[in-house]
Design a binder for these strands. Structure first.
Lengths: 332, 332
DNA sequence: ATGAAAGCGCTAACAT
DNA sequence: ATGTTAGCGCTTTCAT
């Protein structure tokens, strides 16, 4: 069984290659019935267009730039997964994906057909830079209102985590923030605060500790809290990695999760599963696909859109109902 | 100035497209002089073959699978950079690159033209699996002898780090290992030991601590050493990330690097520069290119080769000559 | 050793 | 609304 080509699909559907191509590229001028017919044949045959051929047939470089700060690479898993999602989607569209670190912005001299911005921070110069160059783009994370962005509901996610803990009886809930340069961090903090408000709990600056999205940062923040003698029965972290660090710090201090302290994360990376971590899931693949979609639309000249992706709380073993500390200690 | 194509090169060199193609692909049957002539024109014009066109003209899927464990994503920066190098190289050859996590090995049902294995561990089943499927591959990291691998001189690198510290007067040198499942970790430990032997220093099991290649792991290992009251004036870490953790732990304990303790890393990732870390540099780009090269050779039916890449010691501020502890404290 | 020419699978311009 | 056709830039026979 040799490779399925567009010609094969056309023959099988009893139409011309041109029509199939039009359907594939969502171009106007095809009867609704024919469109459905062709779609059916495509599905049945499991036909996937050859990226190389598409790239060749269209003009231009057919390169999408993935703009990211070098720091972001530290983000490791999260950006790795996001990148996978983006690459796969663009590959199918016949686009290559090229990583362009912010420092090497000279790579924009040979402009890519489009760009995806990752890790946008508060006053990021890149959106304006790209606009000036006339390169269409979309971004993961919010910034100016007139750009195409997709973002996860950071505040809503954290608020849900807080409510979950409150429902379990927790009243003294710590929060460990991410890197304060990013708005994800700020929004998650806001979500934490609004979660407290919802539950009628007081805001307390002494319960908020600075982290940096890394496991080490989470560990040190937790140690600081412990050393200061702050009282708490739960910790909400702005990332799974930090939650990992927090759990390690608690255990090193002889405490047990969740018996002595409940911990929640954010992201739902593989590490969360390994640790049995209750966390706020970000649908990474979906985010990547949305970002790709928005960019493709921009490149096609369609208007700017935004996309706010909802999160969902994944409850695992790291959060549990509050029992008096004494009881918890006894149990252990 | 429109795009430079093979036709343009052919015209400029006064030969046919076919000949240029033969030169580009190192195929036999071209006069040495013509070959040189064409090469010259290619360089002068800055001609780069169009990946899409190559892909289309050759047959097959033209997909390279990047096989990696999900854990590896945690490696973050290192694997990110390695991946960049691989993708760029293959892109120029007209190959797409597809990440295949070990868990999703069903992706091999539609076999890629070749595969690169990352993070090979001691008895990794993947080489045999690929062999059974008849998929050519190369790997980063050593394993069986009859496979194509490229590896960095792990032992040599660590040995050099130890010698450097010994030359600075250090005698009580700690070592923090990586994840013990990987051979990189084992080889670096061996390098540490042979460095001690070279210098006539005794091996001491009490100076070796288990890490896991992460910053958090380095932090905790260092804390353990401190808590046990082990005496030491220097630490060699099996990775930059762990060195980062070690430095944090030392500072949290009120010690100063390098005045109280010298620290070395391994990798020379961007973080090493930021920290002013003395470290063993791995030429990541070169490693990626070598791995790509070996795979391309395999796919062309050429014999298996190996490639051992040398490391180099980058001396920065985190290592310094030993002075008596008292003096060091005074200075601060 | 080199040239000429036929595709590779697709898109897009031009017909109908 | 759909079919037809000419390339996109390269590799690869098949001639010479």
């Amino acid at each position: 069984m040799s490779k399925i080509t567009i010609a094969r699909v056309a023959q099988e559907a009893g139409v011309s290659k041109g029509t199939v191509s039009r359907v594939l590229n969502d171009r106007a001028g095809v009867n609704e019935e024919t469109r459905a017919l062709v779609r059916g044949v495509v599905d049945r045959l499991g036909y996937v267009p050859d990226p190389g051929a598409r790239q060749l047939a269209r003009r231009g470089r057919h390169v999408i730039g993935l703009l990211l700060d070098d720091d972001l690479r530290r983000g490791g898993t999260y950006y790795g997964l996001l990148r996978d999602a983006l690459e796969e989607r663009f590959l199918n569209e016949g686009y290559h994906t090229l990583v362009i670190p912010t420092e090497r912005s000279d790579a924009l001299d040979t402009p890519p057909d489009g760009a995806i911005l990752l890790g946008v921070h508060l006053d990021d110069p890149r959106p304006r830079q790209l606009e000036a160059l006339g390169i269409p783009f979309s971004m993961v994370g919010r910034s100016l209102d007139d750009t195409a962005w997709v973002d996860v509901d950071n505040a809503g996610g954290l608020r849900e985590a807080v409510r979950h803990l409150v429902a379990l009886g927790h009243k003294r809930i710590l929060h460990i923030t991410g890197a304060h340069t990013g708005q994800a961090s700020v929004l998650r903090l806001e979500g934490y605060l609004s979660g407290l408000r919802d539950s009628g709990l007081p805001e307390d600056g002494a319960l908020i500790f600075d982290g940096d999205f890394t496991a080490l940062g989470g560990y040190r923040a937790t140690r600081r809290a412990l050393e200061r003698g702050v009282e708490f029965t739960a910790i909400t972290c702005a990332s799974d990695e930090m939650a990992h660090g927090a759990i390690s710090a608690l255990e090193d201090a002889g405490m047990r999760v969740p018996w002595d302290v409940s911990v929640t994360g954010f992201d739902d990376l593989p590490v969360a599963g390994r640790l049995g971590l209750t966390t706020v899931r970000q649908p990474i693949t979906q985010i990547g696909e949305a970002a790709a979609e928005l960019l493709l639309e921009r490149m096609a000249g369609k208007p700017v859109r935004h996309c706010l992706v909802p999160t969902s709380l994944i409850v695992r073993a790291s959060s549990a109902a509050l029992v008096s500390t004494t009881v918890a200690r006894d149990r252990h």
